[in-house]
Nucleic acid binder design. Structure first.
Length: 353
DNA sequence: AACCCGGGGAT
DNA sequence: ATCCCAGGGTT
């Protein structure tokens, strides 16, 4: 008698054949669509990203159509998904494909990896799924699954930890079907080997999971982590004059780059309207015109992963615009054409009622 | 290496 | 409230 021992890959692939998900981007080998799905799903749940994927594929069926769009249109389609640099990089990468690769999506790891917004994970995911190239994709799911199966206490968010897990992931890859293997281990992490509570009772690995044997499942993976929140106080001036509204495009190295918002006065701490009156930007926008404050609406704190935004919207009507304000005025009816942060979108929704 | 970049869902 | 999500770029 001899007991069969299966490779981890075999167990994952067997589980995947029974319980894997049927997702739109798994029904194609088109590298463009696979890349698009991977960028959308960076730090984003499948449930949230799927409708954006379908929306993008519908509007931009190939890389050339995406490359020839305006950045504003891409951002508008991306509105609400967060991490907007992904959208800007997506657009830039599409232009790279047209300019540097003659419109044909790159077919090597180095080529895919050279695209804006494509790191080691995304390049591996695309190359394995589209071209069956033997690269192991290491995402949050893979860190969790491997750290548990091997009961690894090394933190995943250090350079040496990432190297360790990259090497381990490589050693487990099934080179006969790398794309399917990568999807299998990620689905397993997303559906069975979940953060908490993990479903160890119905796990195909049973006592082959070292963390289960050691009782350390819930504390894997280990992260150094250091999350420090920053508080910010935003005062938005919702200024209208006739049928026009003032709108600014965010720039610089800050949140929401490329998105639109009302003129913003930021203060280092909570401030009342009187404090705003003394700010130079206020006079620049409203000058001596007989403006009227129609009301102020504080917003429940808006929580980002690293910042807490305390926002107040000040509704102001003025009969005339200063030169500085004139440059920002857009017809009020076109507000819906601009990509705006969720915070602004919610405020606009509340105004329509 | 440390920090920055969103929004939503689950616990 | 806290954590996490098919991560990547910048400094």
């Amino acid at each position: 008698m001899q007991t069969m021992t299966y490779r981890i890959a075999d167990i994952l692939l067997d589980w995947y054949s029974r319980e894997g998900r049927d997702l739109p981007w798994r029904r194609t080998r088109d590298p463009y669509r696979i890349w698009l799905s991977e960028v959308i799903l960076q730090q984003t749940r499948v449930a949230q990203g799927t409708e954006y994927y379908l929306r993008f594929v519908g509007r931009f069926p190939d890389v050339r159509s995406l490359a020839s769009a305006s950045e504003d249109e891409v951002l508008k389609l991306w509105q609400g998904l967060g991490y907007y640099s992904r959208a800007r990089n997506l657009h830039a990468a599409a232009r790279q494909v047209v300019d540097d690769f003659g419109g044909r999506f790159p077919t090597t790891f180095a080529g895919v990896r050279s695209l804006r917004g494509v790191g080691d994970y995304t390049a591996a995911a695309v190359c394995s799924a589209a071209y069956s190239l033997p690269y192991a994709a290491v995402d949050g799911n893979v860190y969790r699954v491997l750290s548990r199966l091997f009961d690894i206490a090394e933190p995943i968010d250090t350079a040496s930890g990432r190297r360790l897990f990259a090497e381990l992931a490589r050693s487990q890859l099934d080179e006969r079907d790398p794309g399917r293997y990568n999807q299998a281990i990620m689905d397993f992490g997303a559906l069975r080997c979940t953060p908490s509570p993990p479903r160890c009772g119905e796990c195909p690995f049973g006592d082959r999971c070292l963390a289960l044997a050691a009782g350390t499942v819930v504390s894997r993976p280990v992260k150094q982590g250091r999350t420090q929140l920053r508080d910010r106080w935003f005062h938005y001036l919702h200024i209208t004059s006739g049928g026009r509204t003032l709108l600014c495009r965010r720039s610089g190295r800050d949140i929401w780059q490329g998105l639109y918002e009302f003129p913003l006065l930021e203060t280092p701490e909570a401030a009342d309207f009187g404090a705003l009156l003394r700010m130079p930007r206020f006079a620049e926008l409203l000058g001596d015109a007989p403006w009227r404050l129609l009301g102020s609406m504080p917003v429940a704190r808006h929580q980002l992963s690293h910042q807490t935004i305390h926002a107040v919207f000040h509704r102001i009507e003025t009969p005339s615009l200063t030169p500085a304000a004139e440059a920002l005025a857009v017809p009020t009816g076109t507000l819906g054409d601009y990509a705006v942060p969720r915070l602004i979108d919610r405020y606009l929704m509340s105004c329509q009622r």
